[in-house]
Design a protein around this nucleic acid. Structure first.
Length: 255
DNA sequence: ATGGCTACAGCATGTAGA
């Protein structure tokens, strides 16, 4: 089984990239973030005949947005993260497939909106911890993939790429990420590539060619899925294409 | 430490991304 995640930075701009990625990586499930469109504006026609079905959760105004594309049967079980009734951000989708639960997330960046913007990020991470606890308690295979907007350690960003006050590296952000792994979730890329400097995001401009990047797109696996972990790959060719997203895709392969 | 990019809403520039 293969699971992928990609912050697409506008799915309407990048639908051809996504289609090509599906054809090369052949994931069973692909989670997308930053659709930047309303639900009904998802470019369905771009995926006709691809063998993939999709479910999109857009947002009025075109911010945020998450989706799943699947070549296996699936059922959407959540279109939002529980815990704040007034939260209208399109940042969470969860599906049931092959007897497991798979969540795609777009975790708040936390650098905009001042102190409240950062507080929202931390609350969101606590809500994610709560739902992950529930899923692990259920004892079913569970994974969370997406743009976590956290560099878990100093190995996960190019030296000097961000100031220490940035919401992606602040101690509270890293502590909240560790709270997820301490539940028993495995960071798939790090588990298979310990000690390596690996990035999944590079700013527009010279950052990609100089490999001045960040590792902020992650796949966290419940213990039974982690036992089956075989490969974890970052798709550099996708980021090297014309007019790319500033992120690239992460794909994990499970036995 | 960010906007020198990029995308979007909407039509001038503000907001957001990370």
């Amino acid at each position: 089984m293969r699971l992928s995640t990609l912050n697409v930075n506008s799915v309407r701009k990048r639908a051809p990239h996504v289609r090509q990625f599906l054809e090369s990586a052949k994931p069973d499930l692909l989670f997308l973030q930053e659709l930047k469109c309303k639900t009904e504006e998802f470019p369905a026609e771009a995926f006709a005949g691809s063998g993939y079905e999709f479910h999109a959760v857009g947002q009025p105004g075109g911010r945020n947005g998450v989706a799943v594309l699947a070549r296996i049967p699936f059922k959407v079980v959540a279109e939002g993260l529980p815990g704040e009734e007034e939260d209208t951000h399109a940042r969470y989708i969860e599906v049931e497939a092959t007897g497991g639960r798979f969540a795609g997330i777009y975790l708040p960046n936390g650098n905009s909106g001042g102190a409240e913007g950062y507080a929202y990020k931390l609350r969101w991470m606590e809500r994610l911890r709560a739902i992950a606890t529930d899923r692990l308690d259920d004892g079913i295979p569970f994974a969370v993939l997406g743009d976590f907007n956290v560099c878990p350690t100093e190995l996960d960003l190019a030296p000097g790429a961000l100031p220490p006050t940035d919401a992606l590296v602040r101690p509270e952000s890293r502590s909240a990420f560790r709270a997820l792994t301490h539940l028993g979730l495995t960071d798939a890329v790090r588990a298979l590539h310990p000690g390596e400097r690996l990035y999944t995001y590079w700013d527009y401009g010279p950052a990609f060619e100089t490999n001045r990047g960040l590792r902020i797109d992650h796949a966290l696996l419940s213990p039974e899925l982690a036992e089956r972990l075989e490969r974890a790959e970052i798709d550099y060719a996708l980021r090297a294409q014309e007019q790319p997203s500033d992120h690239t895709a992460v794909t994990i392969t499970l036995r």
